[in-house]
Design a binder for these strands. Sequence first.
DNA 1: ATAGGTTGTCGAAGCGCTTCGACAGCTTTC
DNA 2: GAAAGCTGTCGAAGCGCTTCGACAACCTAT
Lengths: 348, 348
Amino acid sequence: MVTLAEVAQHAGVSASTVSYVLSGKRSISANTRQRVERSIRELGYHPNAGARALASSRSNIIALMVPLRTDMYVPVMMEIAIAVATTARTHGYDVLLLTGEEGPDAVRRVSGSGLADGMILMDVELDDERLPLLRDGGAPGRAESGVGDDQPAVLIGLPADTTGLTCVDLDFKATGALCVEHLATLGHRDVAVIGEAPAVYERHTGFAERTLDGLRSRGRELGLRLLHRPCEGGYDAMAATLARILDERPGTTGFVVQNESAVEPLLALLRQQGRAVPEDVSVVAICPEQVAVQASVRLTSVAIPAQEMGRHAVEQLVAKLDGRGGDEVVLLAPELTVRASSGPAPVQ
Amino acid sequence: MVTLAEVAQHAGVSASTVSYVLSGKRSISANTRQRVERSIRELGYHPNAGARALASSRSNIIALMVPLRTDMYVPVMMEIAIAVATTARTHGYDVLLLTGEEGPDAVRRVSGSGLADGMILMDVELDDERLPLLRDGGAPGRAESGVGDDQPAVLIGLPADTTGLTCVDLDFKATGALCVEHLATLGHRDVAVIGEAPAVYERHTGFAERTLDGLRSRGRELGLRLLHRPCEGGYDAMAATLARILDERPGTTGFVVQNESAVEPLLALLRQQGRAVPEDVSVVAICPEQVAVQASVRLTSVAIPAQEMGRHAVEQLVAKLDGRGGDEVVLLAPELTVRASSGPAPVQ
DNA sequence: ATAGGTTGTCGAAGCGCTTCGACAGCTTTC
DNA sequence: GAAAGCTGTCGAAGCGCTTCGACAACCTAT
């Protein structure tokens, strides 16, 4: 293991000079800098992370807490995680992967031990247990949580109460609104919403409820008749759900699908029943681009901008860590792309 | 920030005593231990990770390098990553998430800086650039790589040359063999293999080639006629591939699918062409369980034991870090589960 | 009773880095 | 031409922990 001191000796300068070359926190003459850089290269020096963290009380690590369950949106989660890791590196940070398993304890552990400088939380519930630990010392007094030095954090997702929190998310309410608008414009009156698995709603995951809110309130304004049904992924569950929907509202011509693992089953079932897409029924999905273009019918969809969310979250967090306070809540505007799965409602 | 010294003072003992209570490396009287533990609880003490790493030259962190690309097996990757994180925690380790982007440099950086105690690499290519950095100081002399103190590592996947490396993987050769055996037993003679995207083969990812090897050699023994076609995911690509296959071998009655994003398109296309599954054609998939049971036809499949691979990898690595050298190469035995997508070959 | 073990605790050194204050040698300013 | 300000470098303190050797206090075996 090469140390700072060895580099210093090799370059004929003091240790502090090498440190300043590395950090750029004091000016160094071009000459000295070059000698030091050369020594660093020749000796293959890498600063020791532990020593650095100890001396500077900065670990240059961001913790990312991903959901443990894999019952939804796996590709989205993965894409976010990778975007976070990649973006973090461009800012000189590494990423520590935490699972939701430990819950609030993980937050305490990481923040107490100085393992990470800040954290990014995914899969935030409306009233998440971890939030009290993250709010910056706002209203309820100091000793509210035990984490005195508030842990800089960014949420991907939106809890019920965002005071004192920084959040990044797709604007799911606008997303819902956009979907029904599109269908309404095409003349559809009876629209069914294939939602996430019931468990997702029971958990009070914000995005599912916000989407529904957007769908409903805009749907009402536009005079649509909306039927919402949660649905587990897979063919069988979708078959049952579809049967119920068509039983209740035989005139349904528009579908909004939020559960990506219900998309392909739905298309197959519709085909099987002789309902042509988009001639007889239109389908709008809320899903990653890739799913939309790879489906058996190219789907009209609102994309979930996973990468952008990950990138944004990191940038907000880095801004916080640098003392530049970022915005509080960033909602990314949804974009609907028209593809081959939606068209004018059939004349009755 | 509570420090060791504060805990020591609060408990009326010396700092080293507290340290020994924490590490258990020396015996401590029950009385003292309890006093110290009480102080730790009352003060909410968490050892500082940096200081600990510096003093002990152990970070208690495992680095996990995931592929940057998301062109294949995303759910598998995610499941492995989560299993790694979860298992690591049970051994007192945290997980650092690295993307393949940095390549060999990431290995050098992490191992040089002491950021992690060991690493787990996924998506290993047959002749991976990162391997020379990981082989323990074997044949080619000391200065072979620049990483003198060899970085303990475990690969998930199998490179061409495994000397000096610890690897965990599904036995893909046996997997391929198992698939053709199943089809042969059912009386199928003409079998088509829907492979991964061409890029996966060009990259010389071990598992794809090993599967093919197993399929071919066992297929030959059983007297099958095998046709292998790489295939991008999605409906259009699958349609083109299927057309070519049926054009070339109209008598094809068996399919082995390795690309999970080709599964559903294939089923849809077969249905569309009036070929019933499993009456007219049989389909065997190599995919995670979840995909197999959620498909529109419950698929006969060989499962990819993602969780088990992740868990195994961590356990091997922890064993290495504890000085108990693990096995060198662990190949998990494949298991074929018969479901509704395979049946006797039609009589011609 | 005495030499030799155990057991439980402490003090101090040191891990490799950052950072503060000091200062030598300049240049600028009136 | 002295005061004031830069610039570039160094030495030393210290970050919070682990770990080694020392040693008091006790417990055996002779």
